[in-house]
Design a protein around this nucleic acid. Structure first.
Lengths: 398, 398
DNA sequence: ATATTTAATTCAAGTTACTTGAGTAAATAA
DNA sequence: TTATTTACTCAAGTAACTTGAATTAAATAT
C-alpha cells in the first residue's frame, strides 16, 4: 500500500513568519494606503506583530510609508503602500514561431515587452534564445538582474502525455520529454513557473486587469486554439495533471466540423483564431494573421462578420455551460485576438437566461473583455510570478 | 472604495498548533498505522513536535496507540491509528417529500440512517422536525450527544437568488429567504454546514468511498435533477455564490428537449431520475420511483434500456467535457439511482478518445461508480463534517 | 553469543515570532 | 481646556516548534 504524500505540511514559527508577511503584503497591495491598526484587525494579528512585519517589509523595500491621514478622531494613521518597483517579474511566451518576453513591475504594469522570431523551436534551440531574450529585455527595462522575482514561462497546453492522446496538435515539438521548469531554472538560476496561456491570462486579470477585486472568474483565451483559465476562491485551477481548461475540445455541435483531435464539433473549430483563418481561407481570403483580422474587422468584411456570428453562437453555449458549472462572478474573453473582434463576439452573444449567473443584482456584466493582443500571454506569465509572491496560500507551508 | 476583506488571516502559535494537529490527524487517518518518525518526515515537522502532537491527540481520543511494528532494522515503530469512534458526524438531507438522517463515525462508516416522510416542507415546519430526527437518530446510534462533531445539511441547489432565474424548479419552497445554516445552528447548537447534494456526494467518496486516495475528482450526482461536485486539489469547489456544479443545465443537444429552465436540450432532460420518469411515463409506465426503476432494470425493460442508451450518449458528451475542463483523476457517477442503472450507464458510455483523460498509464478507470442509493446525500452531509474536521486547510487561519 | 548498525524515540535546552499590558502620542469632540 | 478616541511603541511574557545529545530496541554482522 502506497503511503499518501501529505501535500499539506505543518507550520512552525519560521513558516508562519513567511505566511504572515504575505498576508500583510497582500492586504496592503489590495487596500493601499492603509495603516497598521487596520491591517491588524483585518488579518487577525496583533498590532505589535503587524508593526514588526511592516517594519521588516519596509526595510526590504516591499512597503513604503506614505505619510499620515488625518480627518478622523484619534491619532492619525501612518499609512503604508505597496512598492511596485521593489522588484519585477518576467513573463516569457514560448510559441512555435516566436518568443515573447515581458517585464512587469509588482503592480502588474508593463515596463517593456520584446519578441524575437524563431523557427524550429526545439528545446535545445529555443531555451538558450529565450534566456538571452530574457536578459536583454531586463536590461532594456533598466532593471537590476538581482531584483528579478522570477520568470513565468507560458506554453500552450496540454502538458505531459497529451501528445499521445490526439489533443495538442498545436503543441511545440520535442517539449514533451523534458522538464521545462528545471531546464529554465538551470539556465536562468531563478524561480521559474510554467503554465498554460489561458491560466496565465486569468491570473493577469486578477493581478492588474479587470478582475483585481474578483476571486472567482473564468477566462476564455484565444490562442492558437481556445483555452480556459479558472480562478476559484482566488486560486488558479490546474487539474490533476496540469491540463485543466481544455475547453477548445468541448463539443458544442454533435457531428459538427471535424477537429484535429479526432472528434467532431469541438468549440475550437468554430471559435478560435485557427477557426477564423480556416473559415476565411475557404472563402478566398489569404494570409490571415492577427493584423489581417483587424483590417477585415475595420472593413466590416461580411465573411468575418458571418464567422463572428457563428462563433458567438458556439461561445454562448460554452459560456452558459461555464456559468452553470463554475458559478463565477464573471466570464472574461481575451487573448491573442484583436480587441474589436472580442468586442464584436461579446456583443453578439446570446446567453441562456436559465443560468445561475442570470442574477438581477449583478455588479459586473456576465461577460467582459479582458486583456488581449500579442503580448497577453507573456504578461500573464509575469503575472503568475507576481501572484505567487503576493498571494498567501497554504502552499507556503509546502 | 470598499476595502477588501482579507479572507486569509495571519498565523500565530495557537493557530499553528491547530493546523499542525489537523495535518498530523489527516496523515494518520490516511496512512494508518503509522509512527511518529514517518509522520514527522511527511508533514515537515520535527519528531519532537510530532511526538507532542500525537500525545495530545491520543489524550483527546483522536489517536490510538496500536503496538509496535518489528521486522525492519532499528527500534520498532510505535504505531498510531486514527480512532474512528472518538466522535461522530451527522448528515441531514432535506427533501420536499422526506427528511433523511445519517450518523457516521469518523472513518465515514454508516452507523445508523433514518428517515421520516414530510409534506409541505416549509422551513417553519421542516426545521423542528429535522432537529427532532437528528436527536432521535443520534440516540438510535447509541452515541453521546456531547460527542457530536457537527451536522451537514444537504439540500438541492442552487441557493440564493436562483429562484428568480428559472433554474431550481425542484427546489424546496420558502427556503430562499432564510439563513439555513444559522437556523439549524440555533436549533441544534452545534457546527452546521449546508451544501448541495452533489458536492456532499463528492466529499463522501473522498472520505470513505472510491476516492480516498484521489485529490481531483468530478462526481456526477443523480438527484431529482443532475448535479456536479468537484474536488480539486483535495478541496471541494463551491463557486462564487455557492452554486457551483449546475451541470444539469448544460446543453448537450441544441434545440433539444424543452427544459423547465426555459432552455432546450439540457443534459438533465436526458440523464436524470426525472428524465427517466418522464420518458417511461410517456411510454405507458406508471408510478416510477427508484424501486420501480430497479424492477424494470431486472426485467430488462426495453423502454428503460432505450432510455439508458440515450442517456449514456448525453452523459458521454458531458463527461468528455468535464475531463477536458477539470483534468480529474476520475469521474464518479452516483446518487439516488439504482446501482444497476448506474452500472449500465457506465457500460454504455462512449467517451471521446481525444481527451486529456485518455492516458495510457491510467491507474483508475476514467469513469467509476460511486456511492448510490436513498441515503447517499445524508451520508454525504455527514462526510462534509468529517472532511472539515480532518482536512487541514488555510481556512484554519480564518 | 557478542558487537555493530540502524532507526525510533526521549529529554532538556534554545529559538522564534507572536501576544499582552502598560504607557505615549496626536487628533477630534465637548 | 478637558475628555475621548484611536494609533502606536516598549518591554516582558508565552506558546510551540527546533536542535542536539542521549537512550532504547530491533536486525544484522562477526
Amino acid at each position: 500500500m502506497q503511503k499518501t504524500k501529505s501535500a499539506i505540511k505543518g507550520g512552525n514559527a519560521g513558516r508562519n513568519r513567511g505566511h504572515n508577511r504575505r498576508v500583510v503584503l497582500d492586504y496592503v497591495r489590495r487596500n493601499e494606503p492603509t495603516g497598521r491598526a487596520e491591517i491588524a484587525r483585518s488579518c487577525g494579528l496583533s498590532i505589535q506583530a503587524v508593526s514588526n512585519i511592516t517594519d521588516a517589509l519596509a526595510a526590504d523595500g516591499f512597503l513604503q510609508m506614505v505619510g499620515k491621514a488625518t480627518g478622523k478622531r484619534g491619532k492619525p494613521v501612518v499609512q503604508y503602500r505597496f512598492n511596485p518597483d521593489q522588484s519585477f517579474a518576467v513573463g516569457l511566451e514560448m510559441r512555435p514561431d516566436a518568443l515573447v518576453c515581458a517585464v512587469l513591475n509588482l503592480k502588474g504594469a508593463l515596463i517593456v515587452a520584446d519578441r524575437i522570431a524563431i523557427s524550429n523551436a526545439t528545446p535545445a534551440r529555443a531555451i538558450p534564445l529565450a534566456c538571452e531574450l530574457v536578459e536583454k529585455t531586463i536590461e532594456k527595462a533598466g532593471r537590476a538582474r538581482s531584483q528579478l522575482l522570477g520568470v513565468g514561462v507560458v506554453m500552450p497546453g496540454p502538458f505531459g502525455e497529451s501528445a499521445l492522446s490526439g489533443i495538442g496538435e498545436a503543441n511545440l515539438p520535442g517539449w514533451q520529454d523534458i522538464d521545462i521548469k528545471q531546464s529554465f531554472e538551470a539556465a536562468l538560476s531563478c524561480t521559474v513557473v510554467v503554465e498554460n496561456d489561458a491560466t496565465a491570462a486569468a491570473i493577469s486579470e486578477r493581478v492588474a486587469g479587470v478582475a483585481t477585486k474578483i476571486d472567482n472568474l473564468c477566462f476564455i483565451y484565444f490562442g492558437t486554439g481556445l483555452g480556459l483559465g479558472v480562478i476559484a476562491g482566488g486560486h488558479a485551477q490546474s487539474g490533476a495533471f496540469g491540463n485543466f481548461g481544455e475547453i477548445g475540445h468541448v463539443i458544442t455541435q454533435v457531428d459538427g466540423t471535424a477537429c484535429s483531435c479526432g472528434n467532431h464539433g469541438c468549440l475550437e473549430t468554430y471559435a478560435s483564431r485557427m477557426a477564423a483563418k480556416t473559415y476565411l481561407k475557404a472563402r478566398g481570403h489569404s494570409a490571415i494573421d492577427t493584423e489581417a483580422l483587424s483590417r477585415l474587422m475595420v472593413a466590416q468584411d461580411p465573411d468575418l462578420q458571418a464567422w463572428i456570428s457563428r462563433a458567438a453562437k458556439h461561445l454562448s453555449l460554452a459560456i452558459g455551460m461555464l456559468e452553470n458549472i463554475f458559478d463565477p462572478e464573471a466570464v472574461v474573453l481575451g487573448g491573442a485576438m484583436p480587441d474589436s473582434i472580442i468586442e464584436a463576439l461579446i456583443a453578439q452573444l446570446s446567453l441562456p437566461k436559465g443560468s445561475v449567473a442570470n442574477r438581477k443584482e449583478r455588479s459586473i456584466a456576465r461577460v467582459i473583455k479582458g486583456a488581449s493582443g500579442r503580448n497577453t500571454a507573456a504578461i500573464g506569465g509575469a503575472s503568475i510570478i507576481i501572484h505567487q509572491a503576493t498571494t498567501p496560500a497554504l502552499s507556503l507551508f509546502n
